[in-house]
Design a protein around this nucleic acid. Structure first.
Lengths: 358, 358
DNA sequence: TTGAAAGCGGTACCAA
DNA sequence: TTGGTACCGCTTTCAA
């Protein structure tokens, strides 16, 4: 007999000890009077097992409450069926949607989601260690990683897909939304509708997406010859929107015609501040636009004019891209760029959209 | 030599094959000229290892990029350092906060979070299987589980802590927020302020928390002798709030004086519908209150009167309760009940709060 | 303090 | 189709 049947029998003989040990395939095998490998095969989908063997084992397994140990399995198969997900902060209102979508898709494909939220960017390194030690099959990151950090991934041949970020310095797998095109289009429409004085409320300094949004807007404004443009910093939260508008109003010694906010939540804060504190009608006297298309942007009080990201399709793309990378390790990096769709809403005067353009 | 050193040497001799295998403690041991067990000990906090051994191994490990395999470790220690988290739907706006808090606390304690979101309650059984097979150390559930499902947990001696739910039928570990007390207090204040016709917009049928909120409100209303009370169903989403108010208005052939919504998001929908569609001033002609204390409830457009749950403290309690259960398996179930705090806001006329009470 | 050896609970290959 | 056996990569006695 094998090396372990002895010890298992010992335990069985020990009798009185309380059964803190979980049921194993050996227990099922002994009780069913078959070999342990047979039990293992019965739990493998396409295995060659006779019908009676399968039934016999299934019955005993059910009686004993046996569930295969995924930990042990992944030790030898080198597939943990675990995917790591890295998200900077869940309070962003946009991320919960992303996370929810990712989670559904993964479950659907038999993959478990190991979640890591980052209070601060500096904690990334700790988290990466967890990925290495848990031997996750791959990682989706909605947080920024340094070049060095990314290098560690391919050094370990660990599949990595970025969600809404990427690296300029080198090609990486990424699912993105075209922020630049959307921002330019927004600016074009706003300018065509007669806005001349533009305020921009940016995201936090370390947000690549935010910078992309604001810089594209600025570039397009410059292109159109509009020079009355002020930019202030923001933090992606509701308060930033109001604070930003206040700063802009001071800078303009009046108020801008239009405010472009780097995300929806700031835009909502901006609208509320305009209406409540500055007594400025939106959109009549002030146009406000945002980015993301989160749920509250659509609420009646706001009806925000915004660029909605196709979160569902992006999540689907990210998950399937990650799985492709896992299946085919040598795969060259790919970048899939989705287009945001304009939600016209009612917080900005956009004109008819037919005017002169690019 | 051991049974495996042979095979490891073979691989090393094989040479040309690409190193798809990750670095193991054997690789480090060979390179450092020490035993594998020594390497293992060097990565165990309180182990008895000489300083030079520790340094030597650490150096080689760094050179080789070695990270201990947590999978293999947990196979023998029977501790995965994985906690399962079960959440019904992340779109609820309240759950992302909870999840974020839980995640932080777990990371803090060296525990990884295995996330499961449920599109439908019926999927619970599948998810449970995952818990069993991944041998998570414990589970926090913010989703409802049946008596049978809970029974499977203690059958497997798997620690379980409910978040904001519990079972009437039997004691379980749970961290809750006192919905009933809060609801009664709200009703009392509203009644004292002169409201007589009450509308209630409930949660989905399977939400225990929602039922508790509405039933307590109803009970208190009955106690106060107020009979003009109508209840309609809701779905916890924004639209439910508007739809609910519409239904209530029909039922009352006019409109209620106050609407109690089973969560904040419905309350916000209710306010918007009242103001925009019914042209009813809130709070002057209609008082609206909610439950939860989510971020948008505090936005200037709403300033919702609501009962805020102490999410952070509750998350902390849930995590530490779970860890306690893991440390001390036989521990009898405990229920920790937190109190919601009234956010007076500006969406309801509450009077001075000094009036006659219970 | 160090090393040898026996598992943890599976999978996979091989011969029967 | 079935059973025997060698691992996966680590922890943990037990001697030395």
């Amino acid at each position: 007999m094998g090396r372990r049947s002895k010890s298992h029998e010992t335990v069985a003989a020990g009798g009185t000890r309380r059964p803190t040990r979980a049921i194993t395939s050996y227990d099922v095998a002994r009780r069913a009077g078959v070999s342990q490998s047979a039990v293992s095969r019965c739990f493998k989908p396409g295995a060659s097992v006779s019908r009676q063997m399968r039934e016999r084992v299934a019955r005993v397994a059910r009686e004993l409450g046996y569930t295969p140990n995924a930990i042990a399995r992944s030790l030898i198969t080198r597939r943990s069926h675990l995917a790591g997900v890295l998200i900077s902060n869940l309070t962003n209102l946009y991320y919960p949607e992303v996370l929810s979508e990712l989670s559904q898709r993964f479950v659907h494909r038999g993959i478990r989601l190991l979640l890591f939220t980052l209070p601060r960017e500096s904690d990334v390194d700790q988290v990466l260690d967890q990925f290495w030690s848990y031997r996750v099959d791959g990682v989706i990151s909605a947080a920024r990683l340094s070049l060095q950090q990314v290098a560690m991934f391919d050094q370990r041949q660990m599949p990595l897909v970025f969600f809404n970020r990427y690296l300029k310095e080198r090609p990486v797998n990424a699912v993105c939304c075209d922020q630049a095109g959307g921002a330019e289009m927004l600016v074009t429409r706003l300018a065509a509708a007669g806005h001349r004085r533009f305020g921009i409320i940016g995201g936090p300094p370390d947000s690549v997406v935010g910078r992309e949004r604001t810089e594209s807007a600025q570039a397009r404004l410059a292109q159109l010859g509009i020079t009355a443009v002020k930019t202030v910093g923001g933090n992606y939260d509701y308060e930033s929107g109001g604070r930003g508008l206040l700063e802009l109003s001071k800078a303009f010694k009046g108020h801008p015609d239009a405010v472009i906010c780097a995300n929806d939540v700031m835009a909502l804060g901006c609208i509320d501040f305009a209406r409540t504190d500055l007594r400025l009608a939106v959109p009549e006297r002030l146009s406000v636009v945002g980015f993301d298309g989160v749920a509250p942007a659509g609420w009646r009080s706001y009806q925000l004019t915004t660029l909605r990201q196709p979160v569902q399709r992006m999540a689907e793309a990210a998950v399937s891209m990650l799985l492709d990378c896992i299946e085919e390790p040598g795969r060259p990096p790919e970048r899939r760029v989705f287009t945001a769709s304009l939600v016209e809403g009612g917080s900005a005067r956009l004109g008819d959209g037919q005017s002169s353009g690019r």
